[in-house]
Design a binder for these strands. Structure first.
Lengths: 346, 346
DNA sequence: GTGAAAGCGCTAACAG
DNA sequence: CTGTTAGCGCTTTCAC
């Protein structure tokens, strides 16, 4: 197979007439070894171009200094920012990240988690797919004693931690804002109710409506997914129903983008004919026209919390108490759903 | 440390009164083992919740079935799509991916590659940072005999493969199109010339200008980076110079988005006052207003080619001939730079 | 301060 | 078809 015979600890030990233990210790800065020896060893190591073998190291030490991550998607602003934050935090804590992508496919999710377990990651950070229903794999993770932290799309499993944004509160703020502007006919493109973010964002919508004593029109709560397609179809359904709302609260920004496309096709205008706001910021919300107001999720905090919590769990495996952390959201107001909208304060 | 004592091959071998070799072989579908035994073993394995230890497996077999990937960024449409494609292709070829993110920082890039080498990946796919100048680490990779494939942002290193899009041809097409519409005063926000995509896209721009016997105004070729910030500052520089072009060719879509923001601030209008087109599609190009025409890079083909080429190299380590593959681009025409633009055919 | 011995969990060669 | 014997390259006791 043309195996490239790597340089090993032994090679450099022989070169220096010391034992490989000495080299190993020196490389890890073990206090056993004298300064001069350590220096000499490090010099030789870099001269000979030695690269330690993590496989061997991990096998021997029974730990990997690695956190496995499973996300449903990455070509999506929320997830790519989240992942960037995860990598960043891990990097600063000297942990490696092994990222896998389930592509919203729960079978693939299971396979990836098995791989990660097989790689003997020290901990796991998971954001589940839209179709994940079966908990079995997560029970397996728990049984193997691997710290597990869910992010954003979470499952309620005892012994695991979770980091979520305050979906319900964020939704509430958004719909509240629309109501204060004077809108009464509010529709919600709601994703899927089985997914926790779908349910929780719906609840926030519901809270706001209740607080204003407004009934919820079931025809105006439309499920169908979290992507552009869902937004497009959702709006078309509203449009064709002959009973249009004044305002749409979209469960994600891709759903909102889908609505933009559909509205354009329908010949209507945002925000005059139909106003909109969504949950989730992205790099483009400010560049689309009209610029899109939204509920912002601080992905940097999410990622940081997820990694730090997982590391905490790893390092204090016997005493760690799982935590459910909720990160607050904030409203970002732009051209849609603003005081300049047609219905404002009427 | 509260180590979770995992179940090993031996455990299940003892349970079944066979040797661990038998179990190992059965699990890998080795033809040595009879069907019944294999079935029995697999049953026991899943009953006992055994997860093979890849560390041990890889150490022993001297291969990892893993490809290391280094990208400069992921919260960017081009890279996140590329990565998705890489994961997808690897998945279908039964390879694992270990992704690392250099954050456009070349020191971090080096560290990540060292980690990947230490993990004994079978091959490496790299898209370099904007500041990568030093080749040393890549020479090290070569020296260790690890197949190396560059994607998009490439380095010319003998013995390595590269997958790029036809930057020059794509740029040429874009600028050509603008010229055909009647534009003559063409500016180019050009990224950095040291980065190959910067240089190549500039060349395409140059080709088109030359073909139409138009001189290139050096004041209208502005370097400064590949992000929104660069686009914003680039446009402001043009705007404040008092000598505005009619058309801007932006080296990336974030640069174009930066221009959109700056144009809005300046009080001008796209495409009437200034028209624009960019290299690189994204999920938002069609949703911004006016929708943004661009040169599309087929990220799915890029990722697929990169992975397949790398695997090919891994499997035929002695005979493999490095390849430089160039993937063609296509023009996507939307509202900017269209026949409806002010200058069209005048 | 340094090193010898043992073993992490698995696979590869070879015997039976 | 099944098992025995040797490692893979490193870290971990525990002597010296």
């Amino acid at each position: 197979m043309g195996r490239s015979s790597h340089i090993t600890l032994d090679d450099i030990a022989k070169q220096l007439n010391v034992s490989k233990v000495t080299v190993s210790k020196a490389l890890r800065g073990h206090p056993d070894i004298s300064k001069e020896t350590t220096l000499l060893i490090k010099k030789t190591v870099s001269e000979m171009g030695y690269t330690p073998n993590y496989m061997a190291r991990n096998l021997s030490s029974q730990r990997s200094n690695t956190i496995g991550v499973v996300v449903p998607k990455i070509a999506h602003f929320f997830f790519s920012s989240l992942i960037e934050s995860i990598y960043d935090t891990a990097f600063h804590n000297n942990y490696e990240i092994i990222l896998t992508v389930s592509q919203e496919n729960s079978e693939r999710e299971v396979k990836h988690i098995e791989s990660l377990l097989a790689m003997r990651v020290d901990g796991l950070i998971v954001s589940i797919t839209q179709q994940t229903r079966d908990h079995a794999i997560f029970e397996k993770v728990k049984k193997q004693g691997i710290p597990l932290t869910f992010v954003d799309r979470v499952l309620d499993i005892p012994g695991t931690s979770s980091i979520t944004v305050d979906d319900r509160g964020g939704s509430f703020m958004a719909v509240e804002h629309a109501l204060r502007l004077g809108y009464r006919k509010i529709a919600h493109l709601a994703g899927y109710p089985e997914i926790n973010i779908g349910l929780r964002r719906y609840r926030g919508f519901e809270d706001a409506m209740k607080m204003h004593d407004l009934p919820i029109n079931p025809d105006w709560v439309i499920y169908g997914g979290f992507d552009e397609e869902a937004g497009y179809r959702g709006f078309m359904k509203l449009f064709n129903s002959g009973n249009m709302p004044e305002f749409i609260f979209a469960v994600t920004y891709p759903v909102a983008l889908g609505v933009y496309a559909a509205v354009e096709e329908s010949g209507l205008k945002i925000p005059d004919d139909i106003d909109i706001m969504c949950f989730g910021n992205s790099d483009v919300n400010r560049f689309i026209s009209p610029s899109l107001s939204c509920v912002n999720q601080p992905t940097d905090k999410l990622g940081k919390a997820a990694v730090e919590l997982t590391i905490d769990h790893i390092k204090n495996i016997d005493t760690f108490e799982p935590q459910q952390i909720e990160i607050p959201t904030e409203l970002i107001l732009r051209q849609t759903c603003s005081v300049n909208s047609k219905h404002a304060y009427n």
